[in-house]
Amino acid sequence: MGLIALGLIGLAGWLIWTGRLQRMSTKDGMALGAALVGAVLAAKGKPMLGAPILLGAALFFASRGKAKTGKRRSSRRIADPIPLTDGDIEQARALLGLSSDADSGAVRAAHRRLIASVHPDKGGTEALAAQINAARDLLLDDLAGKDQKRGR
Rank of each mutant, 00 (worst) to 15 (best):
T26R: 08
L41K: 04
T69R: 02
L143I: 13
K149W: 13
A110R: 03
A92F: 09
I4Q: 04
N133E: 15
K27C: 02
A110V: 05
L95E: 10
S99M: 04
Q22V: 15
M24T: 05
M1T: 12
A5Q: 09
R136H: 14
S25P: 01
L114Y: 14
L114Q: 10
G45N: 00
A127H: 05
G87I: 11
G105I: 12
P83H: 13
I82E: 05
F61C: 01
M24C: 03
G7I: 04
G13C: 06
A5F: 11
W17V: 12
H111N: 01
I16Q: 06
A34P: 00
Q131A: 05
L6T: 15
G13Q: 10
A94S: 15
T85V: 08
R136E: 07
A34H: 08
K66R: 13
L95V: 03
L84P: 03
A57M: 06
S25A: 08
E90M: 15
V37I: 14
G70F: 07
K71N: 02
A144K: 10
H119F: 03
F60C: 05
G2C: 05
L3G: 04
I115N: 07
L128E: 08
S117D: 14
K27H: 04
R93W: 08
L140D: 02
T26D: 06
A134G: 12
L8M: 09
M24H: 14
D141T: 09
D28T: 12
F61H: 10
R108P: 01
M30R: 15
S100K: 06
N133C: 09
G70S: 09
A110M: 12
Q148Y: 10
T18K: 08
L21V: 12
R72M: 09
A109M: 05
A134N: 15
D147C: 01
A144F: 00
A106K: 13
A129H: 12
K44S: 15
F61S: 02
A12G: 11
G2K: 13
G13P: 08
L128C: 06
M24G: 01
I132R: 03
P120T: 00
